[in-house]
Design a protein around this nucleic acid. Structure first.
Lengths: 209, 209
DNA sequence: TATTTTACATACCGACTGGTATGTTTTCCA
DNA sequence: TGGAAAACATACCAGTCGGTATGTAAAATA
Protein backbone atom coordinates (compact mmCIF):
# COMPACT_ATOMS: atom_id res chain seq x y z
CA UNK A 1 0.00 0.00 0.00
CA UNK A 2 1.08 3.51 -0.70
CA UNK A 3 0.65 4.69 2.84
CA UNK A 4 2.88 1.92 4.09
CA UNK A 5 5.65 2.86 1.69
CA UNK A 6 5.28 6.54 2.57
CA UNK A 7 5.32 5.96 6.28
CA UNK A 8 8.24 3.61 5.95
CA UNK A 9 10.15 6.19 3.95
CA UNK A 10 9.40 8.95 6.41
CA UNK A 11 10.61 6.92 9.29
CA UNK A 12 14.03 6.26 7.84
CA UNK A 13 16.57 7.80 10.19
CA UNK A 14 19.85 9.34 9.11
CA UNK A 15 21.01 11.27 12.15
CA UNK A 16 23.97 13.06 10.58
CA UNK A 17 21.88 14.04 7.57
CA UNK A 18 19.18 15.34 9.89
CA UNK A 19 21.72 17.31 11.86
CA UNK A 20 23.10 18.81 8.68
CA UNK A 21 19.58 19.66 7.49
CA UNK A 22 18.94 21.61 10.67
CA UNK A 23 22.28 23.40 10.39
CA UNK A 24 21.65 24.50 6.81
CA UNK A 25 18.15 25.72 7.59
CA UNK A 26 19.41 27.56 10.66
CA UNK A 27 22.15 29.13 8.56
CA UNK A 28 19.61 30.43 6.05
CA UNK A 29 17.43 31.88 8.79
CA UNK A 30 20.40 33.53 10.48
CA UNK A 31 21.55 34.92 7.15
CA UNK A 32 18.14 36.45 6.46
CA UNK A 33 17.02 37.52 9.93
CA UNK A 34 20.09 37.48 12.16
CA UNK A 35 20.70 35.13 15.07
CA UNK A 36 18.38 36.99 17.41
CA UNK A 37 15.78 37.13 14.66
CA UNK A 38 16.03 33.43 13.91
CA UNK A 39 13.00 31.50 15.22
CA UNK A 40 13.45 27.84 16.00
CA UNK A 41 9.91 27.07 14.86
CA UNK A 42 10.69 28.57 11.47
CA UNK A 43 13.87 26.54 11.16
CA UNK A 44 11.96 23.39 12.02
CA UNK A 45 9.08 24.00 9.64
CA UNK A 46 11.66 24.59 6.91
CA UNK A 47 13.11 21.16 7.57
CA UNK A 48 9.86 19.33 8.23
CA UNK A 49 11.20 18.24 11.60
CA UNK A 50 10.01 18.97 15.12
CA UNK A 51 11.50 20.13 18.36
CA UNK A 52 12.34 16.63 19.42
CA UNK A 53 14.84 16.35 16.59
CA UNK A 54 16.34 19.77 17.21
CA UNK A 55 16.87 19.35 20.92
CA UNK A 56 18.22 15.88 20.38
CA UNK A 57 21.05 17.22 18.23
CA UNK A 58 21.58 20.58 19.97
CA UNK A 59 21.20 21.41 23.66
CA UNK A 60 19.82 24.90 22.99
CA UNK A 61 19.57 27.77 20.52
CA UNK A 62 22.98 29.13 21.37
CA UNK A 63 24.69 25.81 20.68
CA UNK A 64 22.92 25.66 17.33
CA UNK A 65 24.20 29.13 16.52
CA UNK A 66 27.74 28.18 17.48
CA UNK A 67 27.54 25.04 15.35
CA UNK A 68 26.38 27.09 12.36
CA UNK A 69 29.53 29.16 12.62
CA UNK A 70 31.84 26.19 13.10
CA UNK A 71 30.30 23.78 10.64
CA UNK A 72 28.63 25.90 7.96
CA UNK A 73 30.15 29.37 7.79
CA UNK A 74 33.73 28.24 8.31
CA UNK A 75 33.33 25.69 5.53
CA UNK A 76 31.83 28.32 3.26
CA UNK A 77 34.88 30.53 3.58
CA UNK A 78 37.13 27.57 2.97
CA UNK A 79 35.23 26.58 -0.13
CA UNK A 80 34.80 30.03 -1.63
CA UNK A 81 38.12 31.66 -0.70
CA UNK A 82 40.74 29.28 0.66
CA UNK A 83 40.59 26.77 -2.16
CA UNK A 84 40.34 29.12 -5.17
CA UNK A 85 43.15 31.34 -3.89
CA UNK A 86 45.38 28.40 -3.03
CA UNK A 87 44.75 26.79 -6.41
CA UNK A 88 45.41 29.95 -8.40
CA UNK A 89 48.70 30.37 -10.22
CA UNK A 90 48.22 34.13 -10.32
CA UNK A 91 46.84 34.88 -6.86
CA UNK A 92 46.79 38.67 -7.19
CA UNK A 93 44.82 38.48 -10.42
CA UNK A 94 42.43 35.98 -8.87
CA UNK A 95 41.93 38.17 -5.81
CA UNK A 96 41.28 41.22 -7.99
CA UNK A 97 38.89 39.25 -10.15
CA UNK A 98 37.00 38.10 -7.06
CA UNK A 99 36.60 41.65 -5.79
CA UNK A 100 35.63 43.01 -9.18
CA UNK A 101 32.97 40.37 -9.72
CA UNK A 102 31.54 39.74 -6.27
CA UNK A 103 28.01 40.06 -7.55
CA UNK A 104 28.44 37.45 -10.29
CA UNK A 105 30.53 35.06 -8.20
CA UNK A 106 28.49 35.00 -5.01
CA UNK A 107 25.10 35.82 -6.49
CA UNK A 108 22.84 38.84 -6.08
CA UNK A 109 21.94 37.83 -2.52
CA UNK A 110 25.19 39.42 -1.44
CA UNK A 111 23.79 42.87 -2.25
CA UNK A 112 20.43 42.08 -0.67
CA UNK A 113 21.43 40.32 2.52
CA UNK A 114 25.13 41.16 2.78
CA UNK A 115 28.02 38.95 3.79
CA UNK A 116 26.94 36.06 6.04
CA UNK A 117 30.13 36.23 8.08
CA UNK A 118 30.12 39.96 8.61
CA UNK A 119 26.40 40.08 9.35
CA UNK A 120 26.67 37.62 12.20
CA UNK A 121 29.91 39.11 13.50
CA UNK A 122 28.46 42.62 13.60
CA UNK A 123 25.36 41.42 15.39
CA UNK A 124 26.86 39.06 17.94
CA UNK A 125 30.50 39.92 18.57
CA UNK A 126 29.83 42.67 21.10
CA UNK A 127 27.19 40.77 23.06
CA UNK A 128 28.29 37.11 23.02
CA UNK A 129 31.90 36.12 23.53
CA UNK A 130 31.27 32.60 22.28
CA UNK A 131 30.19 33.90 18.91
CA UNK A 132 33.02 36.40 18.87
CA UNK A 133 35.84 33.91 19.32
CA UNK A 134 34.35 31.54 16.76
CA UNK A 135 33.88 34.28 14.19
CA UNK A 136 37.34 35.58 14.97
CA UNK A 137 38.64 32.14 13.96
CA UNK A 138 36.82 32.45 10.66
CA UNK A 139 38.30 35.87 10.02
CA UNK A 140 41.75 34.67 11.05
CA UNK A 141 41.56 31.95 8.41
CA UNK A 142 40.09 34.24 5.76
CA UNK A 143 42.66 36.97 6.37
CA UNK A 144 45.45 34.38 6.33
CA UNK A 145 44.28 33.13 2.94
CA UNK A 146 44.38 36.62 1.46
CA UNK A 147 47.74 37.32 3.09
CA UNK A 148 49.25 34.17 1.64
CA UNK A 149 47.90 35.07 -1.79
CA UNK A 150 49.50 38.50 -1.52
CA UNK A 151 52.81 37.08 -0.33
CA UNK A 152 52.87 34.66 -3.23
CA UNK A 153 52.20 37.59 -5.57
CA UNK A 154 55.10 39.38 -3.97
CA UNK A 155 57.44 36.44 -4.48
CA UNK A 156 56.41 36.08 -8.10
CA UNK A 157 57.06 39.77 -8.65
CA UNK A 158 53.45 40.81 -9.28
CA UNK A 159 53.06 42.83 -6.10
CA UNK A 160 55.34 45.55 -4.79
CA UNK A 161 57.83 44.09 -2.35
CA UNK A 162 57.75 46.92 0.20
CA UNK A 163 54.16 46.25 1.23
CA UNK A 164 53.13 44.62 4.52
CA UNK A 165 50.91 41.80 3.33
CA UNK A 166 49.37 41.26 6.74
CA UNK A 167 48.18 44.84 7.05
CA UNK A 168 47.12 44.90 3.41
CA UNK A 169 45.12 41.68 3.71
CA UNK A 170 43.45 43.12 6.76
CA UNK A 171 42.51 46.30 4.94
CA UNK A 172 41.32 44.48 1.84
CA UNK A 173 39.07 42.24 3.91
CA UNK A 174 37.68 45.21 5.83
CA UNK A 175 37.06 47.13 2.62
CA UNK A 176 35.30 44.22 0.97
CA UNK A 177 33.04 43.91 4.00
CA UNK A 178 32.46 47.64 3.90
CA UNK A 179 31.56 47.63 0.22
CA UNK A 180 29.13 44.76 0.67
CA UNK A 181 27.61 46.51 3.65
CA UNK A 182 27.14 49.73 1.71
CA UNK A 183 25.49 47.82 -1.13
CA UNK A 184 23.21 46.11 1.36
CA UNK A 185 22.17 49.41 2.90
CA UNK A 186 21.38 50.82 -0.50
CA UNK A 187 19.98 47.49 -1.71
CA UNK A 188 21.89 48.03 -4.92
CA UNK A 189 24.12 45.73 -6.92
CA UNK A 190 25.37 48.73 -8.86
CA UNK A 191 26.64 50.25 -5.64
CA UNK A 192 28.57 47.04 -5.02
CA UNK A 193 30.11 47.18 -8.48
CA UNK A 194 31.21 50.79 -8.05
CA UNK A 195 32.67 50.23 -4.63
CA UNK A 196 34.44 47.05 -5.70
CA UNK A 197 35.86 48.80 -8.74
CA UNK A 198 37.48 51.41 -6.50
CA UNK A 199 39.14 48.71 -4.42
CA UNK A 200 40.28 46.99 -7.60
CA UNK A 201 41.83 50.23 -8.85
CA UNK A 202 43.69 50.55 -5.58
CA UNK A 203 45.05 47.01 -5.77
CA UNK A 204 46.08 47.49 -9.39
CA UNK A 205 48.07 50.55 -8.29
CA UNK A 206 50.05 48.29 -5.97
CA UNK A 207 51.39 46.08 -8.77
CA UNK A 208 55.09 46.32 -9.46
CA UNK A 209 55.67 49.05 -12.09
CA UNK B 1 7.57 68.89 54.01
CA UNK B 2 10.13 66.95 52.12
CA UNK B 3 7.66 64.58 50.53
CA UNK B 4 5.66 67.49 49.19
CA UNK B 5 8.71 69.02 47.54
CA UNK B 6 9.77 65.66 46.12
CA UNK B 7 6.37 64.83 44.77
CA UNK B 8 6.07 68.33 43.36
CA UNK B 9 9.41 67.96 41.63
CA UNK B 10 8.59 64.57 40.23
CA UNK B 11 5.36 65.79 38.81
CA UNK B 12 6.85 68.60 36.80
CA UNK B 13 6.04 67.97 33.17
CA UNK B 14 8.25 68.93 30.24
CA UNK B 15 6.91 66.94 27.31
CA UNK B 16 9.62 67.71 24.77
CA UNK B 17 12.33 67.00 27.33
CA UNK B 18 10.64 63.71 28.18
CA UNK B 19 10.40 62.80 24.53
CA UNK B 20 14.06 63.56 24.04
CA UNK B 21 14.95 61.52 27.14
CA UNK B 22 13.19 58.50 25.69
CA UNK B 23 14.89 58.98 22.32
CA UNK B 24 18.37 59.15 23.84
CA UNK B 25 17.80 56.08 26.01
CA UNK B 26 16.37 54.18 23.05
CA UNK B 27 19.37 55.19 20.96
CA UNK B 28 21.76 53.81 23.58
CA UNK B 29 19.86 50.55 23.79
CA UNK B 30 19.77 50.21 20.01
CA UNK B 31 23.47 50.97 19.83
CA UNK B 32 24.31 48.30 22.37
CA UNK B 33 21.78 45.59 21.55
CA UNK B 34 20.37 46.39 18.12
CA UNK B 35 16.80 47.43 17.36
CA UNK B 36 15.44 43.90 17.69
CA UNK B 37 17.39 43.47 20.89
CA UNK B 38 16.14 46.72 22.40
CA UNK B 39 13.56 46.14 25.15
CA UNK B 40 11.06 48.88 25.85
CA UNK B 41 11.08 48.06 29.55
CA UNK B 42 14.84 48.59 29.67
CA UNK B 43 14.53 51.91 27.89
CA UNK B 44 11.87 53.00 30.35
CA UNK B 45 13.74 51.92 33.45
CA UNK B 46 16.74 53.84 32.14
CA UNK B 47 14.64 56.98 31.97
CA UNK B 48 12.62 56.41 35.13
CA UNK B 49 9.43 56.70 33.10
CA UNK B 50 6.65 54.20 32.46
CA UNK B 51 4.76 52.86 29.50
CA UNK B 52 2.19 55.61 29.71
CA UNK B 53 4.82 58.17 28.82
CA UNK B 54 6.30 56.12 26.02
CA UNK B 55 3.05 55.32 24.28
CA UNK B 56 1.92 58.90 24.69
CA UNK B 57 4.89 60.13 22.65
CA UNK B 58 5.24 57.20 20.24
CA UNK B 59 2.53 54.97 18.80
CA UNK B 60 4.69 51.82 18.89
CA UNK B 61 8.19 50.42 18.99
CA UNK B 62 8.74 50.84 15.26
CA UNK B 63 7.86 54.53 15.35
CA UNK B 64 10.32 54.98 18.21
CA UNK B 65 13.01 53.30 16.15
CA UNK B 66 12.27 55.50 13.15
CA UNK B 67 12.40 58.60 15.35
CA UNK B 68 15.80 57.55 16.73
CA UNK B 69 17.15 57.51 13.18
CA UNK B 70 15.56 60.81 12.18
CA UNK B 71 16.15 62.78 15.35
CA UNK B 72 19.23 61.29 17.00
CA UNK B 73 21.40 59.48 14.46
CA UNK B 74 20.94 62.03 11.70
CA UNK B 75 21.89 64.80 14.10
CA UNK B 76 24.93 62.86 15.23
CA UNK B 77 26.29 62.64 11.70
CA UNK B 78 25.62 66.32 11.18
CA UNK B 79 27.41 67.25 14.39
CA UNK B 80 30.40 64.94 14.00
CA UNK B 81 30.99 65.07 10.24
CA UNK B 82 29.01 67.76 8.41
CA UNK B 83 30.03 70.66 10.59
CA UNK B 84 33.76 69.88 11.08
CA UNK B 85 34.28 69.15 7.40
CA UNK B 86 32.37 72.24 6.30
CA UNK B 87 34.27 74.43 8.76
CA UNK B 88 37.69 73.12 7.80
CA UNK B 89 39.95 75.19 5.59
CA UNK B 90 41.92 72.10 4.61
CA UNK B 91 39.19 69.50 4.12
CA UNK B 92 41.44 66.70 2.84
CA UNK B 93 43.73 67.04 5.84
CA UNK B 94 40.75 67.11 8.18
CA UNK B 95 39.26 64.02 6.58
CA UNK B 96 42.56 62.17 6.82
CA UNK B 97 42.97 63.25 10.42
CA UNK B 98 39.49 61.97 11.22
CA UNK B 99 40.22 58.58 9.71
CA UNK B 100 43.62 58.30 11.34
CA UNK B 101 42.28 59.14 14.79
CA UNK B 102 38.83 57.57 14.87
CA UNK B 103 39.52 55.98 18.23
CA UNK B 104 40.52 59.22 19.91
CA UNK B 105 37.86 61.35 18.24
CA UNK B 106 34.83 59.14 18.73
CA UNK B 107 35.96 57.30 21.84
CA UNK B 108 36.84 53.63 22.42
CA UNK B 109 33.18 52.61 22.17
CA UNK B 110 33.61 52.70 18.41
CA UNK B 111 35.87 49.62 18.60
CA UNK B 112 33.61 47.88 21.10
CA UNK B 113 30.17 48.54 19.68
CA UNK B 114 30.97 49.73 16.17
CA UNK B 115 29.42 52.55 14.18
CA UNK B 116 25.86 53.35 15.31
CA UNK B 117 24.73 54.12 11.77
CA UNK B 118 26.22 51.05 10.16
CA UNK B 119 25.07 48.73 12.95
CA UNK B 120 21.45 49.69 12.53
CA UNK B 121 21.65 49.75 8.74
CA UNK B 122 23.15 46.28 8.59
CA UNK B 123 20.54 44.90 10.94
CA UNK B 124 17.41 46.53 9.58
CA UNK B 125 17.90 47.54 5.95
CA UNK B 126 17.09 44.12 4.50
CA UNK B 127 14.03 43.47 6.66
CA UNK B 128 12.35 46.87 7.13
CA UNK B 129 11.98 49.31 4.27
CA UNK B 130 11.09 52.16 6.64
CA UNK B 131 14.43 51.86 8.36
CA UNK B 132 16.21 51.43 5.04
CA UNK B 133 14.98 54.64 3.46
CA UNK B 134 15.66 56.63 6.62
CA UNK B 135 19.18 55.27 6.98
CA UNK B 136 19.73 55.78 3.28
CA UNK B 137 18.99 59.46 3.89
CA UNK B 138 21.65 59.52 6.59
CA UNK B 139 24.20 57.92 4.29
CA UNK B 140 23.26 60.27 1.46
CA UNK B 141 24.02 63.22 3.69
CA UNK B 142 27.21 61.70 5.07
CA UNK B 143 28.52 60.74 1.64
CA UNK B 144 27.64 64.19 0.32
CA UNK B 145 29.66 65.82 3.09
CA UNK B 146 32.73 63.75 2.24
CA UNK B 147 32.24 64.34 -1.45
CA UNK B 148 32.06 68.08 -0.95
CA UNK B 149 35.19 68.00 1.17
CA UNK B 150 37.01 66.10 -1.56
CA UNK B 151 35.79 68.47 -4.26
CA UNK B 152 36.98 71.44 -2.26
CA UNK B 153 40.34 69.73 -1.90
CA UNK B 154 40.38 69.28 -5.64
CA UNK B 155 39.65 72.96 -6.29
CA UNK B 156 42.35 74.05 -3.87
CA UNK B 157 44.85 71.76 -5.61
CA UNK B 158 45.33 69.34 -2.71
CA UNK B 159 43.66 66.38 -4.41
CA UNK B 160 44.34 64.99 -7.86
CA UNK B 161 41.93 66.49 -10.34
CA UNK B 162 41.23 63.33 -12.35
CA UNK B 163 39.45 61.56 -9.49
CA UNK B 164 35.70 61.06 -9.32
CA UNK B 165 34.87 62.48 -5.91
CA UNK B 166 31.49 60.80 -5.75
CA UNK B 167 32.92 57.34 -6.23
CA UNK B 168 35.83 58.11 -3.95
CA UNK B 169 33.58 59.41 -1.17
CA UNK B 170 31.52 56.28 -1.52
CA UNK B 171 34.55 54.04 -1.21
CA UNK B 172 36.02 55.98 1.69
CA UNK B 173 32.77 55.74 3.62
CA UNK B 174 32.49 52.03 2.90
CA UNK B 175 36.08 51.44 3.96
CA UNK B 176 35.67 53.37 7.18
CA UNK B 177 32.62 51.30 8.01
CA UNK B 178 34.55 48.16 7.12
CA UNK B 179 37.50 49.09 9.32
CA UNK B 180 35.25 49.86 12.26
CA UNK B 181 33.41 46.60 11.72
CA UNK B 182 36.65 44.64 11.65
CA UNK B 183 37.78 46.30 14.85
CA UNK B 184 34.45 45.49 16.44
CA UNK B 185 34.70 41.84 15.47
CA UNK B 186 38.18 41.65 16.93
CA UNK B 187 37.22 43.91 19.84
CA UNK B 188 40.49 45.70 19.27
CA UNK B 189 41.32 49.39 19.07
CA UNK B 190 44.71 48.47 17.66
CA UNK B 191 43.01 46.75 14.75
CA UNK B 192 41.11 49.96 14.09
CA UNK B 193 44.32 51.99 14.12
CA UNK B 194 46.04 49.63 11.66
CA UNK B 195 43.11 49.53 9.30
CA UNK B 196 42.61 53.27 9.45
CA UNK B 197 46.30 53.84 8.78
CA UNK B 198 46.03 51.83 5.56
CA UNK B 199 43.13 53.98 4.38
CA UNK B 200 45.08 57.10 5.32
CA UNK B 201 48.05 55.89 3.28
CA UNK B 202 45.77 55.37 0.33
CA UNK B 203 44.30 58.87 0.60
CA UNK B 204 47.75 60.40 0.96
CA UNK B 205 48.74 58.71 -2.29
CA UNK B 206 45.94 60.59 -4.00
CA UNK B 207 47.32 64.04 -3.19
CA UNK B 208 48.62 66.06 -6.11
CA UNK B 209 52.32 65.25 -6.60
C1' DT C 1 15.91 -12.24 18.83
C1' DA C 2 15.45 -9.63 23.09
C1' DT C 3 16.87 -5.46 25.00
C1' DT C 4 18.99 -1.29 25.35
C1' DT C 5 19.93 2.98 23.15
C1' DT C 6 19.26 6.32 19.71
C1' DA C 7 16.37 9.36 17.05
C1' DC C 8 12.90 11.43 16.65
C1' DA C 9 7.38 13.29 17.45
C1' DT C 10 3.78 15.46 20.48
C1' DA C 11 2.01 18.21 23.91
C1' DC C 12 2.72 21.56 27.04
C1' DC C 13 4.76 25.23 30.07
C1' DG C 14 6.50 29.63 31.80
C1' DA C 15 8.77 33.75 31.01
C1' DC C 16 9.13 37.56 28.28
C1' DT C 17 7.44 41.49 25.69
C1' DG C 18 4.87 44.68 22.92
C1' DG C 19 0.72 46.72 23.41
C1' DT C 20 -3.84 48.42 25.68
C1' DA C 21 -7.34 50.11 28.92
C1' DT C 22 -7.98 52.94 32.52
C1' DG C 23 -6.99 56.09 36.11
C1' DT C 24 -4.74 60.39 37.89
C1' DT C 25 -2.41 64.63 37.99
C1' DT C 26 -0.76 68.66 35.64
C1' DT C 27 -1.16 72.26 32.23
C1' DC C 28 -3.51 75.09 29.15
C1' DC C 29 -7.08 77.99 27.70
C1' DA C 30 -11.66 80.26 27.27
C1' DT D 1 -11.23 80.01 37.67
C1' DG D 2 -13.18 75.95 35.97
C1' DG D 3 -13.23 72.60 32.55
C1' DA D 4 -10.95 70.38 28.73
C1' DA D 5 -6.94 68.44 26.98
C1' DA D 6 -2.33 66.91 27.59
C1' DA D 7 1.09 64.19 30.13
C1' DC D 8 1.93 60.93 32.41
C1' DA D 9 1.31 56.28 35.94
C1' DT D 10 -0.66 51.60 36.89
C1' DA D 11 -2.44 47.27 35.97
C1' DC D 12 -3.25 43.98 32.89
C1' DC D 13 -3.59 41.20 28.57
C1' DA D 14 -2.40 38.13 24.65
C1' DG D 15 0.77 36.34 21.64
C1' DT D 16 5.35 34.63 21.03
C1' DC D 17 9.24 31.73 21.79
C1' DG D 18 12.79 28.99 23.92
C1' DG D 19 12.72 25.07 26.46
C1' DT D 20 10.96 20.55 28.75
C1' DA D 21 8.56 16.21 29.78
C1' DT D 22 6.92 12.36 27.88
C1' DG D 23 5.85 8.98 24.42
C1' DT D 24 7.22 5.99 20.48
C1' DA D 25 9.43 3.86 16.72
C1' DA D 26 13.79 2.64 14.57
C1' DA D 27 18.53 1.15 15.08
C1' DA D 28 22.31 -0.79 17.46
C1' DT D 29 23.89 -4.31 20.50
C1' DA D 30 24.33 -8.42 23.17
Amino acid sequence: MNTVIESKHRLERKPDKTRRLILEAAYQEIYHHGYQGMRLDVVLSATGLTKGALYHHFPNKQALGYAVVDEVIYGLVQQLWTQPLAASEEPLGTLIHFIGHIGEIFGPDIATYGCPVNNLAQEMSPIDEGFRIRLDQVYLKWRGDIQQALERAQRSGDLRGDLNCGHLANFVLASISGCIGAAKNAQSLEQLQNCGAMLVDYLQSLRTP
